[in-house]
Computed example of a mutant assay.
Amino acid sequence: MASITLKGNIINTSGELPKVGSQAPDFNLVKTDLSKSSLSDYKGSKVILNIFPSVDTGTCAASVRQFNQEASELDNTKVLCISRDLPFAQGRFCGSEGIESVINLSDFATGEFGRNYGLEIIDGPLAHLHSRAVVVINESGKVIYTEQVPEIVDEPNYKAALEALLDE
């Protein structure tokens, strides 16, 4: 279990992020068109998992915008923005913002992704949503970088996540 804060108040997650060097756990999530998507769909590509509570908050929206901007310049890299938002909300946000370089995936149906990746919030006002985290995966499916953002209202370290891709 990881302890993080929400505006200075301690909240906890269901576990720990996957360890660097481990095989990233596969998942089954829902795209904005309601089709299914799994990690294996992106095998052979570098993958950034941008994980957050809800695209309807300012910090979460900022992370989607920032990774969208950065992703458009990266070769063989997919950015997957994952939350428990309904696929309709994810699609509406990206459509209204003109965001086209990231892939939104929803864990609304089961929450299994959040539990398997150890980032489901288990207490406090955001219980059952995902904590803010970044996981970077190389072409062979190995985890090469993780960040559990310690204060959920803060943005992730974009630079460190992107540098992990370049160091690979």
Rank of each mutant, 00 (worst) to 15 (best):
M1N: 10
T5V: 12
L6D: 08
K7H: 14
G8L: 10
G8C: 11
N9H: 10
G15T: 11
G15A: 12
G15D: 09
E16H: 13
L17A: 07
P18W: 05
V20P: 02
G21Y: 08
G21C: 10
S22W: 03
Q23T: 15
Q23A: 15
Q23F: 11
P25N: 12
D26Q: 12
L29Y: 00
V30S: 04
K31D: 04
K31N: 11
T32N: 03
T32F: 02
S38G: 15
L39P: 01
S40G: 08
D41Y: 05
Y42G: 06
Y42L: 09
G44L: 07
G44N: 05
G44K: 00
S45Q: 14
K46F: 13
F52A: 02
F52K: 01
S54A: 11
S54F: 03
V55D: 00
T57M: 06
G58T: 14
A61S: 13
A61N: 03
A61M: 09
A61W: 04
V64I: 15
Q66P: 05
Q66L: 12
F67W: 04
F67C: 07
Q69E: 15
S72E: 14
L74M: 13
L74V: 05
N76G: 09
T77A: 04
K78V: 12
V79Y: 00
V79C: 02
S83Y: 01
D85F: 02
F88E: 05
F88I: 11
Q90A: 13
R92E: 07
F93I: 07
C94R: 06
E97W: 08
E100S: 15
S101M: 05
V102D: 01
I103V: 15
N104F: 08
D107H: 09
G111N: 09
F113R: 02
F113P: 02
G114L: 10
G114D: 02
G114W: 02
G114E: 02
R115L: 15
N116V: 08
G118C: 11
L119N: 06
I121S: 00
P125H: 06
P125K: 10
A127P: 03
H128T: 14
L129P: 00
L129A: 05
L129G: 01
H130R: 06
R132P: 06
A133L: 12
V135C: 04
I137T: 03
I137C: 03
I137K: 04
N138G: 03
G141T: 10
V143D: 00
V143Y: 00
I144F: 04
Q148P: 04
Q148N: 11
I152S: 00
D154M: 12
E155F: 04
Y158H: 05
K159C: 07
K159P: 03
A160D: 11
L162T: 01
E163Q: 13
E163S: 13
A164M: 05
L165T: 01
L165G: 00
L165H: 01
L166F: 07
E168L: 14
E168V: 15
